[in-house]
Amino acid sequence: MKALVEKMVKALVERPEDVQIKEQIDGEQILVEVRVHESDIGKVIGKGGRTAKAIRSVVYAAAMREQKRVRVDIVD
């Protein structure tokens, strides 16, 4: 999941070198924490949260193949 999220987020931001992705696996649940530069947070969240929702949808679909639950948190 980490590689998938990293690839999507780095394509959106102006400062891809500042993107940090942390992944924690706890049994059947995966937590993916996304950190970006404060000037890029709006690009990752998108207008009305649409971009963040799209990222989460793709990650959820990928996680269903592995029968795991995923939570994606976007922080600055």
Rank of each mutant, 00 (worst) to 15 (best):
K43E: 04
G49H: 01
A52D: 02
S39G: 14
R56C: 14
D18K: 12
G27M: 13
R56L: 09
E14K: 10
G46R: 03
E38K: 13
V36F: 06
V44P: 02
L31S: 09
K43D: 04
R35V: 08
R15H: 08
H37Y: 07
R15W: 09
T51Y: 01
R56V: 10
A52S: 15
R35A: 13
S39K: 14
I30N: 06
V34A: 05
G46D: 00
K43G: 04
V32W: 02
R56F: 06
E23H: 10
V36R: 00
L31V: 15
S57N: 15
E33Y: 07
G49F: 00
R56I: 13
E17R: 02
K43F: 01
E38Y: 09
D18T: 01
S39R: 10
V58C: 10
I21R: 12
V19Y: 11
D26R: 08
Q20M: 09
P16I: 02
V44C: 04
E28R: 13
H37R: 14
D18H: 12
D26Q: 11
G27I: 08
E33K: 15
R56Y: 09
K22P: 00
R35T: 12
Q29W: 14
A52L: 12
R15K: 11
E33G: 05
R35K: 15
G46V: 01
I55V: 15
R50Y: 06
I30Q: 03
K53W: 02
L31M: 15
H37Q: 14
D18L: 07
I41R: 13
R35C: 09
V44I: 06
R56H: 12
S39Y: 03
D40P: 03
V34H: 02
V19T: 05
R35D: 07
